[in-house]
Amino acid sequence: MRRLSLLLLFAVTLGGTAVLDRPLSAEDGAGQPDSFLVQFGNKAIADLTDPSLSDEAQVARFRELLYEGFDVPLISQFVAGRYWRGADEQARREFVEVFEHYLDQRFRPLFREYQGQEFRTTGVRSDTGKPHLSWVAMTVDVGASTAAKLEWRVRKDPDGYKILDVKAEGVSMAQTLRDEYASVARRQGGLPGLTRVLREKIQQGAFTPDWAS
């Protein structure tokens, strides 16, 4: 049980408050992965905490941002793991659609917590053997005297950058979902069963944080 403290940092980072370690300066190049992340994060905070946006408009904006900053189809395929291959096109489309709903329900409310905050990064490192991948580090405050290291995995595309994953204290969000989904898919008859379970939970509002429901 003691070890769970680190494991749980993963959950915290999803709703934590950014610690401002290194402000983005004007000298930072706009073409760098950390600059991309800072600019994208600040834009997302500004857009999704805009009080003039209706709920419907906020949902639409969140999904636009999701596809702008993340490679959602690739992440969807990754978290589906081996069950992706055995599924037909219809099952895959339904899973991606439901996974997008999951992301919306789980993460959009968290932006309320970020109102007035700014994304700040603490460093960038290249991925070994993969020059088109970078890890952008930042620190998040997870308590009065505790901070956790967060790393975003960012891929450089010809037309910009895409976020592929986020790690907190060594725990990958994509890998965690992949392991969990594999367990459910195995017992529920593959990707359609996993999609059904996710859809039921979404309809129950199960992924909405308590304070936001």
Binding site: L4, V171, T176, A182, V184, F207
Partner: peptide, 19 residues
């Protein structure tokens, strides 16, 4: 937040141990 709490904890435990 989990759809399989057991599997999530198992995954988190393993990744954290690697770390």
């Amino acid at each position: 937040d989990s759809i399989d709490y057991y599997a999530r904890i198992r995954s988190l435990y393993r990744q954290t141990r690697l770390h």
